[in-house]
Amino acid sequence: MDLFGETENWETKLKPILKKYKGKKHPLDYQNTYQLLVMVVLSAQDSDANINSISPVLFEKYPTLNSIAKTDLETFLPYVSKVRNHNTKAEWLLEIAKKIKNDKDIPLTMSGLTALKGIGRKSANVILRETGKPAEGIIADLHVIRVAPRIGIIKESKDGNKVEKDLMQALPKNIWSEIGMAISFLGREICRPKPKCPECLLNDICLYYSTEVEVLKN
């Protein structure tokens, strides 16, 4: 059996985490699509917890895209000053707000989202999943980049776009919407950099675990 080929029935093998995490909300504590968009842009190379901590004050001051469109960088910056790369991200958000203007006009397609400053495929996949739109790819965040090769679905790569492409080739389209976030939650909770393998729902099919078990036996 080719470990990295289409002969693997990954939909069945991954069913335990698909079932456990199906529909579970992203850790970013957003209330609507506008807030999700802003928080996804801010969260790049930063923690969800940090973005959650600054968002209440930010959204009290700027409750809509239109309110950001009407401000200037100097006024806006203090509200995101605790975010990594805040200058660049603030400029992106002002540009997005001026381009879209109204919350209802936020594009909810891969091409529409990735045309916006600061939104790559990973961010777009998160927004599409959270807004219930059809999947056009698979979320490949830092947890997925670490965990998917460990399980044995794909070969290891540090490139998120390559990881996503390889996952799209290995997994059936009907699970794209949920599987990225399911693997991400597994990575956040169980399959940490130092994994808690005995607690994992996938240890019976996991390449890493089977390898580790064999090493321990010998």
Rank of each mutant, 00 (worst) to 15 (best):
S55P: 14
I151R: 00
R146F: 02
P149L: 13
I153D: 01
H143M: 05
G112E: 06
L113G: 03
I127D: 01
P78W: 13
V163P: 10
L108F: 07
V57T: 11
S111K: 14
T75P: 00
G180L: 13
Y79I: 03
E74D: 08
P193E: 13
P193L: 06
K82L: 15
K104N: 10
Y79K: 04
M181A: 15
K196G: 10
C191H: 02
T88I: 12
G118E: 00
K165P: 01
E60H: 14
L171T: 01
S111T: 12
K196A: 15
C191M: 08
I100K: 03
A140N: 07
S123D: 02
L167W: 06
I139C: 09
E136D: 07
S157C: 05
V126N: 10
D141Y: 06
A170Y: 11
T71S: 12
D159R: 13
S184P: 08
I68N: 05
L73N: 01
A90W: 06
A124F: 11
T64L: 10
E178M: 10
A115I: 03
C197S: 07
T64H: 13
Q169F: 07
E130Q: 10
W92N: 12
N85I: 06
I179M: 08
L171Q: 00
L128S: 09
L108V: 04
R146C: 10
D166K: 15
C197L: 09
V144K: 01
I127A: 04
G180T: 08
K158W: 09
I183M: 03
G187F: 00
G180E: 15
M110W: 04
K196V: 14
F76H: 03
P107F: 03
S123G: 13
I106E: 12
M181R: 03
E74I: 01
Y62N: 00
D166A: 14
K82A: 15
P172C: 11
G187E: 03
A170K: 13
E60N: 15
T109K: 04
L113A: 02
G132N: 04
W92I: 01
E164D: 08
A115Q: 10
I54E: 06
I179K: 08
V147M: 05
S177Q: 14
L128R: 00
A140R: 00
P78S: 10
K165N: 09
N85K: 00
M168Y: 08
A140C: 09
